[in-house]
Design a protein around this nucleic acid. Structure first.
Lengths: 153, 153
DNA sequence: TTGCGTGCAAAGGTTTTGCATGGCA
DNA sequence: TGCCATGCAAAACCTTTGCACGCAA
């Protein structure tokens, strides 16, 4: 347990600011790097990885792994309200990652815990299926949108 | 949606046998490859990937992604049981796969479809978390009950 | 014979690591 | 001044893809 969070550097502030500015969506290391480079505030990839890893350890950032062939997703976790738990829907057709902020899902997690003794981890749990757009366009023709980079809304 | 499962080859049988022999634990591509090579039945990595991908599409195998920096995990799913009817809980501690027969979960799937337009696929969706036994013994200090990592490090 | 399956290697992508340098405390 | 942080590149992985050849049907 190290009491210090490390030095306060410009890169640390830059990354943390980016995370808090995008706390409503999940981001990738590539996305962060590209954005910062575009802003003229280039930060090395290794530095981003190292900071993100530390932030995850500190509980300030959550790490999602949707697919093993794509990269990891990160999202800022507000330290105030830990109840900010939502689940993710992953469309197997277009690869989109949808945030599901729904009380019913949280109720189910509570039910599974109280009745079945299983503590569901929202961080790891992803619902796989077909999203509305894809299921509508699926009936007519085949859209062969392979699984690839998730968008960033 | 092709009705055929492809040719019946020696490699296909070998991989499928390995999966059914290890249906109580999840395995990695590397683990399969190493084991088969040790047995003198070498199968190319690409072939393993291609077969696993097909088996996942057929619903015979489930694919887990625990972490993006490690590889994907696969586990055989018995076709006998009506696994399309219920969901699965995967304990991240002991690796056990729990079949959850619960109407509340099905209700949730219906809710997500009707309200959010997303058709959840029960075959692919797995709830990650900690099972009752592991959370009870969690107070003590057994941390790594990994039974399926022969030579990781 | 036809066409899929296989193996090997190369490619493509993500994440980690080594090392010299720069910056915080 | 002493370390930690950073950047760059290389390394280490995981996974996919291309292509020639083999084998099932």
């Amino acid at each position: 347990m190290s009491g210090s969070n490390g030095y306060k550097t410009k890169q640390r502030d830059t990354i943390l600011k980016y995370m808090t500015d995008h706390k409503d969506s999940h981001v990738t290391v590539n996305g962060i790097s590209d954005y910062l480079t575009g802003q003229g505030t280039h930060v090395g990839t290794a530095t981003i990885y190292r900071h993100l890893e530390r932030l995850v350890e500190q509980g300030l950032v959550r790490k999602y792994t949707v697919d093993s062939s794509t990269g990891a997703c990160f999202q800022y976790a507000e330290p105030d309200r830990e109840c900010h738990e939502h689940f993710h829907l992953k469309c197997e057709k277009c690869g989109r990652l949808i945030h599901l902020e729904c009380s019913r899902v949280k109720e189910l997690a509570s039910h599974i815990f109280s009745e079945h003794g299983f503590a569901v981890d929202p961080l790891r749990t992803v619902f796989y299926g077909i999203c509305r757009e894809c299921s509508e366009s699926n009936a007519s023709s085949d859209n062969d949108t392979r699984k690839e980079n998730p968008d960033n809304e």
